[in-house]
Amino acid sequence: KELVLALYDYQEKSPREVTMKKGDILTLLNSTNKDWWKVEVNGRQGAVPAAYVKKL
């Protein structure tokens, strides 16, 4: 499985998103959308802005 690093804090704004903190390591589930990537963090799945994460 592919991992990404959170470059910034992000507070979810809808139920389809997830909150992450700078430095979090997230499991990347889907990166086909260039703006929003689906990730899993702390057992929750949701979208985060692609510009806020970097593939490891």
Rank of each mutant, 00 (worst) to 15 (best):
K1R: 14
K1F: 13
K1S: 11
K1P: 14
E2I: 14
E2F: 11
E2Q: 14
E2R: 12
E2Y: 11
E2L: 12
E2G: 11
L3I: 08
L3H: 10
L3Y: 15
L3F: 14
L3K: 11
L3N: 06
L3V: 09
L3R: 10
L3M: 11
V4G: 14
V4A: 13
V4C: 14
V4M: 05
V4E: 01
V4P: 00
V4H: 02
V4D: 00
L5S: 04
L5H: 04
L5R: 09
A6G: 04
A6W: 02
A6Y: 01
A6P: 00
A6M: 04
A6Q: 00
L7H: 02
L7R: 04
L7G: 01
L7D: 01
Y8W: 10
Y8F: 13
Y8T: 08
Y8D: 08
Y8A: 12
D9A: 06
D9C: 05
D9T: 05
D9K: 02
D9H: 05
Y10I: 00
Y10Q: 01
Y10D: 01
Y10P: 00
Y10R: 01
Y10F: 07
Q11M: 13
Q11A: 12
Q11W: 13
Q11I: 14
Q11E: 14
E12R: 13
E12W: 06
E12C: 14
E12T: 09
E12F: 08
K13Y: 06
K13E: 08
K13V: 09
K13W: 05
K13L: 09
K13C: 13
K13P: 05
K13A: 11
K13I: 07
K13R: 14
K13M: 12
K13G: 08
S14G: 12
S14K: 07
S14F: 06
P15R: 09
P15A: 12
P15F: 10
P15Q: 10
P15C: 11
P15M: 10
R16K: 13
R16Q: 14
R16F: 15
R16W: 15
R16I: 12
R16D: 15
R16E: 14
E17F: 06
E17Y: 07
E17T: 08
E17S: 07
E17H: 07
V18A: 05
V18S: 01
V18P: 01
V18N: 04
V18W: 07
V18D: 01
V18Y: 04
T19V: 04
T19D: 04
T19N: 06
T19F: 05
T19P: 06
T19S: 15
T19Y: 03
T19H: 04
M20A: 02
M20D: 00
M20C: 07
M20K: 02
M20H: 00
M20I: 15
M20F: 13
M20W: 02
M20S: 00
K21P: 00
K21V: 09
K21D: 03
K21A: 09
K21C: 10
K21E: 06
K22E: 07
K22N: 03
K22S: 08
K22D: 02
K22M: 08
K22V: 08
K22G: 05
K22Q: 10
G23Y: 04
G23Q: 02
G23R: 01
G23P: 01
G23N: 06
G23S: 02
D24L: 04
D24Q: 13
D24Y: 04
D24F: 04
D24E: 11
D24P: 00
D24I: 03
D24H: 04
D24M: 13
D24N: 07
D24S: 06
I25Y: 06
I25H: 05
I25K: 05
I25M: 06
I25L: 09
I25F: 06
I25W: 05
I25N: 02
I25Q: 04
L26S: 01
L26W: 02
L26K: 00
L26M: 14
L26R: 00
L26V: 07
L26I: 08
L26P: 00
T27S: 08
T27W: 13
T27F: 12
L28S: 00
L28M: 03
L28A: 02
L28I: 06
L28E: 01
L28D: 01
L28H: 01
L28P: 00
L28N: 00
L29K: 05
L29Q: 03
L29F: 05
L29N: 02
L29C: 07
L29T: 06
N30Y: 07
N30F: 06
N30E: 15
N30M: 08
S31M: 11
S31V: 08
S31I: 09
S31F: 07
S31R: 09
S31P: 07
S31A: 12
T32H: 12
T32C: 13
T32F: 10
T32Q: 12
T32I: 12
T32W: 09
T32R: 10
N33G: 12
N33H: 12
N33Y: 07
N33E: 11
N33F: 07
N33K: 08
K34F: 08
K34T: 11
K34R: 11
K34M: 10
K34N: 11
K34S: 13
D35M: 13
D35T: 13
D35A: 10
D35Y: 15
D35W: 15
D35R: 12
W36H: 03
W36D: 01
W36I: 05
W36G: 00
W36R: 02
W36N: 02
W37K: 00
W37C: 04
W37S: 03
W37G: 00
W37T: 03
K38T: 15
K38D: 15
K38P: 02
K38W: 15
K38F: 15
K38M: 15
K38S: 13
K38G: 09
K38E: 15
V39W: 00
V39S: 00
V39P: 00
V39M: 00
V39E: 00
V39C: 03
V39R: 00
V39T: 00
V39A: 02
V39Q: 01
V39D: 00
E40D: 09
E40M: 08
E40P: 00
E40S: 09
E40N: 04
E40A: 08
V41N: 13
V41D: 03
V41P: 00
V41G: 08
V41T: 11
V41E: 02
V41Q: 10
N42V: 05
N42Q: 10
G43C: 05
G43K: 05
G43Y: 03
G43P: 01
R44K: 12
R44P: 01
R44M: 08
R44A: 07
R44S: 06
Q45I: 15
Q45A: 12
Q45S: 12
Q45P: 07
Q45K: 10
Q45C: 12
Q45H: 08
Q45R: 11
G46D: 01
G46F: 13
G46Y: 09
G46Q: 03
G46P: 00
G46M: 11
G46S: 03
A47F: 15
A47S: 14
A47G: 08
A47T: 14
A47N: 15
A47I: 15
V48A: 03
V48M: 01
V48R: 01
V48L: 03
V48F: 02
V48D: 02
P49V: 02
P49Y: 03
P49A: 02
P49I: 04
P49G: 02
P49C: 06
P49D: 03
A50F: 02
A50E: 04
A50S: 13
A50C: 08
A50T: 06
A50P: 09
A50W: 00
A51P: 07
A51C: 15
A51W: 12
A51D: 14
A51Q: 12
Y52E: 05
V53G: 01
V53M: 07
V53H: 02
V53T: 03
V53I: 09
V53D: 03
V53N: 02
K54M: 14
K54Y: 09
K54V: 14
K54S: 11
K54W: 07
K55Q: 10
K55N: 07
K55E: 08
K55W: 09
K55D: 05
K55S: 09
K55L: 14
K55T: 09
L56E: 04
L56V: 11
L56T: 06
L56R: 02
L56Y: 09
